[in-house]
Design a binder for these strands. Structure first.
Lengths: 158, 158
DNA sequence: TATTGTTATACTCTATAACTATA
DNA sequence: TATAGTTATAGAGTATAACAATA
């Protein structure tokens, strides 16, 4: 690979045959995720701030005081992975662990002032890069894409 | 997490606020990829056969005799990662490395007979699981989703 | 006994660097 | 000198198991 910038990542090389891959919706999702991840990194600048870590900050901001096990559940992480993700932001003075008076085993997770400021910044940067990701679609097409994606994500009604 | 089956993975817990995450197309792609990966695993049975490893088999099947560096480029892998992915299938008698008469440094990658049979099986299983992934969409909606996804993946025309 | 959170440990995946053999 | 492929090694990221404190 000669170019690490997202613009340089070619998704399909027309010189080769990809078999049935391009006809698989799941394969398209994976490719779209890769492009998302690439331009996410370009936009945020700091490669340490991954989509997962940003998600953690976003969820804490929207639900102050959650327990670590709850955060682990929401983000689909094991307890140790949640511990480390929280450590990441606490090291950077963006999150704090506060003792819970009612259950002294658990600790509520909160944004610090710096964390709130960081989140405010990131929300803007990331909303902008997300718009860039879909800039080739009209407003109607984007709304349609999102509603179709939502249905696929939620899965079949059993 | 109490249920590792794909059906048991709930994508959004209505008890919590996800901030701006659900409005980000990139976040939806990531969720859709996770669901794809989960039901891929369920469908294939063998957890060692990842989407990447299946992709390798598919590309080799469609382009017999490619060099390893070419495969690495197509799949977005480093050379060592390509070596290991090819090793994986060679160990299972599905791929073979054949010397290239014109350049004795390189080796062409080919499906073995067993590899062709394995690929034939996998293609069917995976096409079926892919259809399952989008079973809540009509044929027209699915076609629309795919064409929108294609455009997002290809990126802006610069 | 069960649960919250941390630490210890191991596994997978991927990368870069160093190496061999060719070109 | 440069390239194809392998091996050595290291760094993320994640998981399970064991542990301490508390319920």
């Amino acid at each position: 690979m000669t170019d690490k910038q997202s613009k340089g990542i070619r998704m399909f090389d027309p010189a080769f045959d990809y078999g049935q891959l391009p006809s698989l919706t799941g394969f398209l999702f994976r490719k779209a995720s890769l492009r998302t991840f690439a331009i996410f990194g370009d936009a945020v600048g700091d490669r340490a701030i991954t989509p997962l870590r940003y998600s953690l900050l976003e969820v804490v901001g929207a639900n102050p005081g959650l327990q670590q096990v709850q955060l682990a559940g929401i983000l689909g992480l094991s307890k140790p992975a949640a511990t480390l993700a929280i450590d990441f932001w606490q090291t950077r003075d963006c999150l704090s662990r506060r003792p819970d008076a009612r259950d002294r085993r658990s600790r509520g997770i909160y944004l610090t002032e710096a964390g709130q400021a960081r989140l405010d910044d990131l929300r803007i940067i990331i909303a902008r890069q997300d718009a860039q990701l879909t800039e080739m679609l009209s407003e109607d097409e984007l709304a349609l894409l999102k509603s179709l994606m939502q249905r696929v994500i939620e899965g079949p009604v059993l």
